[in-house]
Computed example of a mutant assay.
Amino acid sequence: MAHGPAKSEVFAQLGEELRCVRIGQGLSAGELARRCGLSRSMLSRIENGQTSPSVDTLQSLAEALEVSVARFFCRRNGRPDLSFVPAGAGIRVDRMGEVAGFRYELLGHLLSGNLCVEPYLVRLQAGAPPFADFQQPGLQFVYLLSGRLRYRHGARVLEMGPGDALLFEGRAPHGVEAVLAEPVSYLAVTLAARQ
Rank of each mutant, 00 (worst) to 15 (best):
A89M: 12
V93N: 05
Q59L: 04
L107C: 12
V69T: 13
Q135Y: 02
S60L: 12
V69E: 00
G101R: 07
A128S: 14
I91G: 01
Y143E: 12
V179G: 03
V69W: 00
D81W: 03
D81N: 09
R19Y: 01
V21Y: 03
F84A: 08
F72W: 05
G78N: 08
S60Y: 03
A132G: 07
E118L: 15
R34E: 14
C36A: 12
S28Q: 05
P137A: 12
E47I: 07
E66Y: 00
S28M: 05
V157H: 05
H153G: 04
G78K: 02
C74L: 09
H109R: 15
V55E: 07
L61H: 03
E9W: 00
P137W: 03
A178H: 10
P80A: 11
E16Q: 13
P86S: 06
V157G: 06
Q140N: 13
A172L: 15
E98T: 08
R148H: 15
L32Y: 04
F84D: 03
A128V: 09
L111P: 01
R34Q: 14
A89D: 10
S54H: 00
H153A: 11
L82F: 09
Q59P: 00
E31G: 00
D94S: 12
E9K: 14
P86K: 07
R34V: 05
L124F: 08
V10N: 04
S146P: 07
G26H: 06
L139V: 10
I46G: 06
V85Q: 14
L43Q: 03
L65C: 09
A2S: 12
P130W: 01
F131T: 06
Q195S: 14
S41A: 15
G175A: 13
G90D: 05
G4A: 08
Y143P: 02
G138R: 07
L166V: 10
V122R: 08
R75F: 01
L32K: 02
V122G: 11
A178I: 08
A6E: 15
V67K: 03
A100W: 03
M1I: 04
L110I: 13
R35Q: 14
L145I: 15
I46F: 04
E47H: 05
V21C: 02
F84M: 10
L180W: 11
Q59S: 11
V157C: 14
R19K: 13
F11A: 12
V10T: 13
V142A: 14
S68N: 10
H153K: 11
R171V: 11
V55A: 13
Q25H: 10
A128Y: 03
E169C: 09
V117S: 04
L149A: 11
A126K: 11
R35H: 02
R40P: 03
L139S: 09
R92M: 02
S146Y: 06
F84Y: 15
E169L: 10
C20E: 08
Q140K: 13
R79P: 00
H174G: 11
N77S: 12
G15H: 06
F72A: 01
H174P: 09
R152W: 06
Q195C: 04
E66M: 00
M96A: 15
G163F: 06
E17G: 14
G30K: 09
V85A: 11
I23P: 01
G161N: 09
E98P: 02
F102Q: 10
R45H: 13
L82Q: 13
G15T: 05
N48G: 14
T190C: 06
S146F: 04
N77K: 08
R19I: 02
P130Y: 05
S8V: 13
F131I: 07
L27C: 03
F73I: 11
